[in-house]
Design a binder for these strands. Structure first.
Length: 679
DNA sequence: ATAGGGTTAG
C-alpha cells in the first residue's frame, strides 16, 4: 500500500493519513516479527559460539521483552544449555512470568541441567513444578528418570515411579524404558525386569536397557540371557546392544568376548558404534592385534572413524608399539581438526610414550592448550617407564603448580617412576604427600609401588615390614614385588614367605615358580630347583610363552619363543647364528641362570638363543636398512640373557634397540642400556 | 524425548 498524494479533499486526506499510520505501525510490527523470526532461526540453527548467542540474546531483549514470545525463551534456553551454560538457561527461565511458564519451559530447564550433569538441580526443578500447578508429562519423566539413573538416586526414582503410575503414564514406551534404566542402574534388576514384563509395547531400547542393567553390574551371563531372549522375540540386536554389553566385557573370559564378536559378525548393518565397541572390547581384553584389524575394516568399508574410534584404537597401537599406524592416526587427527580433543591428545601422548618415542609424546603434550590429570599422568609414567625419574618428579611439581589436582592414579605413576629410578626418598615423600596432604587412603597399587621401591633399593626387610603393617589384605602384586626383590638380593628366607603366599593366591602363575627356582639356583640349591620344577609339572603349570611384537610395513609381526612359523624362519635363525658368534667374540657368555634349570647346559643355551625378542630383533635387522631403529614389545619381562645380548647386538649392528617389556623401557645403544642394568 | 561407545597406573 503506497501513500497517496494529499491533493484531494481534507476528509480524504485525513483518512489516508490514518490508513498510513495504521499501515506503518503494521509494518513496524511486521518488521519486528520478521526480525524476531530471523533471530529465532539464528538461535535455532545454532550459533557458532556463546558470544554470538549472547549478542543475539541482547537483541531479543532490545526489540521486545522476552515474555511477548515464549518460543524465543525456550530456544535461548536450549542454546545456552548446548554451550554448557545451564545457569544462563536458568536466568532466562526465571525471567519468564509464572503465568506463561508452561510445561515446556520446565521440561527444557530440566533437560538443560541433565545434559550438563547437574542432576540434583534437575530434580529440584521437577519437585518445584508441582507447586506451580504444572503437571509433569511423558517428556518430563524420561528425563528426570535419567537424572536418577546417573546419580544413583533410587529414593527419588521410586517417588517418580509412583507419580508416573498416578499420571497413568506407566504404559508409555519412553517412560517404561527410563524406568528400566533407572532400576538397572540402582541395582534393582528385579524391578527393572518387572517393568519390562509389564510393558504393553517394547522396543530394542527396552531390551538394551535391561542388558545394560546387568552388564553394569558385571553380570555377563544374565545380560547374555536377555540378549538370547531378545532374539527369540525377534528383536534384532543393534549397536546399542553391543554398547550396553560393553561394561561386562572388560577383562573377561575369551568365551564372553567371542560371544560379542559373533553378535557383531552377525549384524547385517554395522554402524560405526558397533565397530567402536568391538575395538574397545578387544583393547580391554588384551587383543590389540584384533583391535587394529577391526580398525582397518572400518577404513576398507569406507566408513569414517570418529573421535571415539580413534581414542579406542590408539591404546592398541601403544600396546603393539605400532608406531607407523599411530603416526598415521595422528595425521588423521590433525587433518580432521581434532587436535583440541583431550581424549585424543591424551591418547596420542600415551601411544607415543608406549612406542618408546618420548620426544614425540612430549611434543604432543607441550602442544596441548589444556591438560587434565590424565595428560600429566601419561607423561609422568612415560618418564617413569624410561627410567627418567627426575623428569617425572619435575613434571609432577609442574602439574601441582598448574593447579591440576592429583588423583590416585597419578600417585601410582609417580611412585612407580620413583621405584624404577631408585628414588627412594622421593618415593617416600610422595607416599606421605598422598596420605597426609591429600588424605587419600592408599590402595593396593600404591602399596605395591612402595614395596617395589623398597625392594629394588635393597631394603627387603623393610619392604616386608611394610606389607605386614598394611590394614588391607596384600595382593598378588605385593608379594610378587617382594619375591622379585628377594631374587635380586638373594634373600631366600623372605623369598620363601612371599612364594608361599603367591602359591596360595595364584597357584597357576608360572612366573612365581620361576622366580623361586631362580632364587634356589643362585644359592646353588639344585635339589630344590628340581623340586620346584616337579611341583610345576604335577600341577600342570607351564610358563606363559614369551612373545614379542614388532611392526613392519603395515602389519605387526608376532614371534613366540622358539617360533618357527614365520616365512623367514630360516634366514632369521641363520642370521642369529652369525650374530651370536660375533657376540661371543666380543665376550658374550650366555647367561643360563635366566632359564629354569631343568635341562642340560647346551639345551639351555639353545633355548635361550630363541627367546622371542631375539627373533624379533633379527627379523628387523634382515628386513630394514642399516641404522633403522628396532622397536620391540614383549609380554614378559626381558630376561638377563636377552638384556646382555641386546646390548651386544646394538653395538655390533650399530642400531638403536628399544624394548618395552611388561615393566619398563630399555633403550639399547652402542652396547649399553638406558636402564643402567637396574630393572 | 528413552539406552549405549573414548584417554591415564599396575
Amino acid at each position: 500500500m503506497k501513500p497517496t498524494s494529499s491533493s484531494f479533499s481534507t476528509n480524504f486526506a485525513t483518512t489516508t493519513s490514518k490508513r498510513l499510520q495504521t499501515s506503518l505501525s503494521n509494518l513496524r510490527i511486521w518488521e519486528e516479527f520478521e526480525a524476531k523470526t530471523c533471530l529465532c532461526n539464528k538461535i535455532l540453527d545454532g550459533c557458532p559460539d556463546v558470544l554470538t548467542l549472547k549478542k543475539l540474546h541482547a537483541q531479543v531483549l532490545v526489540i521486545d521483552h522476552l515474555h511477548s514470545n515464549p518460543s524465543i525463551g525456550i530456544k535461548l534456553m536450549r542454546a545456552y544449555s548446548s554451550f554448557g551454560e545451564p545457569k544462563t538457561s536458568r536466568k532466562v527461565f526465571d525471567e519468564i512470568p509464572a503465568a506463561d511458564k508452561n510445561i515446556v519451559f520446565f521440561n527444557v530447564m530440566i533437560r538443560s541441567y541433565v545434559n550438563n550433569c547437574m542432576y540434583g538441580e534437575a530434580l529440584l526443578v521437577y519437585m518445584n513444578m508441582w507447586r506451580y500447578g504444572v503437571v509433569p508429562d511423558n517428556y518430563t519423566f524420561p528425563c528426570v528418570l535419567k537424572a536418577c539413573s546417573v546419580s544413583d538416586n533410587l529414593k527419588v526414582g521410586l517417588q517418580i515411579h509412583a507419580a508416573i503410575v498416578r499420571a497413568g503414564l506407566d504404559f508409555n514406551l519412553f517412560v517404561g524404558n527410563g524406568l528400566i534404566a533407572m532400576y538397572g542402574k540402582c541395582d534393582r534388576l528385579g524391578d527393572a525386569r518387572r517393568v519390562l514384563d509389564g510393558m504393553r509395547q517394547r522396543d530394542v531400547v527396552s531390551w538394551n536397557s535391561m542388558v545394560a542393567g546387568f552388564a553394569q553390574k558385571g553380570r555377563f551371563d544374565d545380560a547374555l540371557e536377555v540378549c538370547k531372549e531378545m532374539e527369540t522375540q525377534l528383536v534384532k540386536p543393534n549397536a546399542g546392544t553391543m554398547a550396553s554389553l560393553f561394561p561386562a566385557v572388560t577383562n573377561t573370559s575369551s568365551a564372553n568376548v567371542q560371544f560379542v564378536r559373533e553378535m557383531f559378525n552377525k549384524m547385517a548393518m554395522k554402524e560405526l558404534v558397533s565397530y567402536n565397541v568391538m575395538i574397545a572390547i578387544c583393547v580391554n581384553n588384551s587383543l590389540p592385534t584384533e583391535a587394529v584389524e577391526i580398525f582397518s575394516q572400518i577404513e576398507s568399508k569406507g566408513l569414517e572413524p570418529d573421535p571415539v574410534t580413534i581414542a579406542s584404537v590408539l591404546p592398541a597401537c601403544g600396546d603393539l608399539s605400532a608406531l607407523e599406524l599411530g603416526k598415521r592416526i595422528h595425521e588423521y587427527v590433525v587433518r580432521k581438526g581434532l587436535s583440541q580433543n583431550m581424549f585424543l591428545t591424551n591418547a596420542l601422548v600415551d601411544m607415543y610414550a608406549k612406542c618408546g618415542c618420548l620426544q614425540a609424546a612430549r611434543e604432543v603434550f607441550d602442544g596441548m592448550g589444556l591438560r587434565d590429570v590424565v595428560s600429566w599422568t601419561s607423561m609422568i609414567s612415560a618418564y617413569g617407564m624410561n627410567g627418567q625419574g627426575r623428569d617425572a618428579v619435575g613434571l609432577f611439581s609442574e602439574m601441582l603448580e598448574s593447579g591440576v589436582v592429583p588423583d590416585q592414579i597419578v600417585f601410582v605413576s609417580i611412585l612407580s617412576a620413583c621405584s624404577h629410578s631408585g628414588l627412594l626418598d622421593e618415593g617416600r615423600h610422595y607416599f606421605r604427600l598422598m596420605t597426609r596432604e591429600y588424605k587419600m587412603v592408599p590402595r593396593l597399587e600404591h602399596y605395591a609401588c612402595m614395596v617395589d621401591l623398597l625392594g629394588r633399593a635393597g631394603l627387603v626387610d623393610e619392604a616386608y615390614k611394610f606389607i605386614s603393617q598394611m590394614t588391607v589384605k596384600p595382593s598378588e602384586q605385593l608379594w610378587g614385588a617382594l619375591l622379585s626383590a628377594c631374587q635380586v638380593y638373594s634373600n631366600m628366607s623372605l623369598g620363601l614367605v612371599a612364594a608361599d603366599h603367591l602359591f596360595q593366591l595364584v597357584p597357576e602363575q608360572a612366573g612365581y615358580y620361576v622366580l623361586l627356582s631362580n632364587i634356589y639356583a643362585k644359592a646353588g640349591r639344585w635339589n630344590e630347583v628340581t623340586a620346584v620344577r616337579s611341583v610345576m609339572k604335577s600341577r600342570g603349570i607351564s610358563k606363559m610363552p614369551g612373545c614379542s611384537n614388532v611392526e613392519m610395513g603395515k602389519r605387526v609381526h608376532t614371534f613366540l619363543v622358539g617360533d618357527q612359523s614365520h616365512p623367514q624362519t630360516k634366514e632369521i635363525y641363520e642370521e642369529l647364528d652369525v650374530l651370536v658368534s660375533k657376540m661371543k667374540e666380543a665376550g658374550y657368555v650366555p647367561e643360563t641362570n635366566s632359564a629354569l634349570h631343568d635341562v642340560e647346559e647346551e639345551d639351555k643355551e639353545c633355548h635361550l638363543a630363541v627367546h622371542s625378542e631375539k627373533l624379533a630383533i633379527v627379523f628387523v635387522i634382515i628386513n630394514t636398512e642399516p641404522g633403522t631403529p628396532i622397536r620391540i614389545t614383549k609380554n614378559l619381562r626381558v630376561c638377563g640373557d636377552c638384556h646382555v645380548a641386546a646390548k651386544h647386538i646394538s653395538k655390533i649392528t650399530e642400531r638403536e634397540i628399544i624394548v618395552r617389556d611388561t615393566n619398563r623401557f630399555h633403550h639399547f645403544r652402542n652396547g649399553t642400556c638406558s636402564c643402567g642394568d637396574y630393572w
